[in-house]
Design a protein around this nucleic acid. Structure first.
Lengths: 154, 154
DNA sequence: TAGTAGATTATAATCATTATCATATCAAAA
DNA sequence: TTTTGATATGATAATGATTATAATCTACTA
């Protein structure tokens, strides 16, 4: 993890920004919750444990900065909030998501899978692809069996 | 167009809703601007021409209703607003989008292109896909040549 | 014609995000 | 060590999209 923070620090320096204590605390929260898809509010609450005096605005600013540097990706699943997802180091493209419409779980797909599709799109639509967002909505493996056993869960 | 409205009317009735004048005016605006990706506010302003007394809340409710009936799809390109996109009649899946990061244009891809990818995802992740969202960010054909001719446009 | 359920309108409330501004930090210069 | 200047921060106000509320309206039906 320290190595990863070091590299992010270098990225910041490269763009003439500093890794302030608040920014470092924010980055650490993101690294420690890499599996999750945290909203700005979520991040804020978690960072407060490390740096109780941090302000919400600083968290927003830091997340925006990290988005700009492509350290994180800002995503939106259609609930009213933006979520921030750490980009895999060295990943050329953004990863995909599986959103379960039953339980709300969000799983990630790190594989690209879109190479062929992108080739078609680039040629046929003359569109130079820089990034992509792919989300599948459906029923996850955890919910498949549930219907009989446990119909009314909440 | 009338046929299309008739079919939407039947869909509403099927779910015990009525096609009120306000709802019809809203649907007509969507049909007349099928190419665009209107926000609720955009729709509201356009509907006002047909039905000057309509309220913004009604437009929101109608768009929500149409989303529920899968007549439109609610999409989000990362600017702060939801946009509403008429679904192609008979389309099994939602179409894809090309968002140009230079000029902001949004083009649509009606072809599915994802069949193979979806088969892989369904099998490998045991995820039963109900719908998908795919957006490419990049540079559209209109902007490709512009760089030399017209560097400082705004 | 009165009753009833659903729709609509205007407006207030909510909630995420952004802007503002005074203060704080920190490195470099004097 | 003090000063300076640029950047970052924190508290809070402002903004803007969306949703909730409450009173009114509109078809229908008895």
């Amino acid at each position: 993890m320290e190595g990863r923070i070091d590299r992010i620090k270098k990225q910041l320096h490269g763009a003439s920004y500093k890794l302030t204590p608040q920014r470092e605390a924010t980055v650490r929260v993101l690294l420690e919750n890499e599996e999750d898809h945290l909203s700005a509010e979520d991040v804020y609450l978690l960072v407060k444990n490390k740096a109780p005096d941090i302000g919400l605005a600083t968290v927003y600013r830091t997340l925006e900065l990290l988005t700009e540097l492509k350290v994180v990706d800002k995503i939106n699943f259609g609930d009213g909030v933006s979520r921030y997802d750490l980009r895999q180091e060295g990943a050329a493209h953004f990863h995909h998501h599986l959103v379960c419409i039953e339980c709300g779980a969000v799983d990630e797909i790190q594989e690209d899978l879109l190479e062929d599709v992108e080739n078609v799109v680039e040629k046929r639509w003359k569109f130079q692809i820089k990034d992509h967002r792919l989300t599948f909505h459906g029923i996850c493996w955890r919910c498949h069996g549930k219907h009989d056993e446990n119909e009314s869960s909440d």
